[in-house]
């Protein structure tokens, strides 16, 4: 029994290899990119629009609102990264309903790669928003004594993200595989349905945590000013 699709190697040339994780990822990328292209090929700016356009608009707008609710001011700037994170993980996890499919997120290499992307994106957005000094200064808050702890926190949360997603997805697949061997067919179906829910929750958790980390890195130091209500003039 394979623990991850990394072990399913199709082609190898020294260090370079094409395994199941990469193949399933490419398939997902193809589906997402081609699907988006097909739907957005005939976009309507009028009231009447297709169901697929409605669906994509709902998804994109919902992701943008979620990003804004977390505290990121310009949602459009983070939509590409955070939205893709959520869509990729969600699509990878929802694909488990297809027989023979192994989610790339069940591979620690994939989750580690995603966590590394977040690990790099946090200082990237932080420096872009607050400048290098401002961002580095955030490691000394609330006191310089916290610097080692902040660095450890930065590393550990990246590791936690990778392992959390991997563990959940791998365990779900493993449990279904085990149940298929020892229980009637009903239980694996129930567990697959539960796995869909778990996959969506994990996609949500991963992207939300990423947004929170980026928001924490881009948020200016000190207490946030209390917004004063602006009197309506109309």
């Amino acid at each position: 029994m394979r623990l991850s699709s990394d072990e399913l190697v199709f082609w190898r040339h020294g260090f370079i290899k094409v395994n199941g994780t990469l193949v399933y990822t490419w398939a997902l990328m193809l589906v997402l990119a081609v699907g988006s292209k097909l739907v957005t090929r005939k976009l309507s700016a009028h009231q009447e629009r297709s169901r697929w356009q409605n669906l994509l608009e709902m998804i994109v707008i919902a992701i943008g609102k979620q990003i804004e609710e977390i505290g990121l001011r310009d949602a459009g700037k983070y939509l590409g990264f955070l939205g893709t994170l959520f869509l990729f993980i969600a699509a990878a996890n929802l694909g488990t309903v297809i027989p023979g499919y192994e989610p790339p997120t069940g591979s620690l290499s994939t989750t580690a790669a995603l966590a590394l992307c977040v690990f790099i994106a946090v200082p990237f957005y932080g420096i872009a928003d607050r400048g290098l000094g401002g961002y580095l200064k955030s490691y000394l808050e609330p006191t310089p004594i916290m610097l080692p702890l902040n660095i450890i926190s930065e590393l550990s949360r990246t590791l936690a993200m990778a392992v959390r997603l991997f563990g959940n997805m791998m365990s779900g697949t493993m449990i279904i595989a085990i149940l298929l061997t020892i229980t009637p067919f009903l239980f694996p179906i129930v567990m697959t349905a539960l796995g869909l829910l778990t996959g969506m929750v994990q996609a949500y958790i991963f992207s939300i945590l990423s947004a929170v980390y980026i928001a924490a890195a881009t948020r200016p130091a000190g207490p946030e000013p209390i917004p004063t209500p602006i009197p309506r003039t109309d």
């Binding site: 990394d6 290899k17 893709t84 290499s109 790669a113």
Partner: peptide, 17 residues
């Protein structure tokens, strides 16, 4: 459990996506 080539490739795949 971690294949570092796959990690790099997946990071690249993700950025391409």
């Amino acid at each position: 459990l971690i294949d570092w080539f796959t990690v790099g490739a997946q990071a690249g795949n993700f950025l391409i996506l």
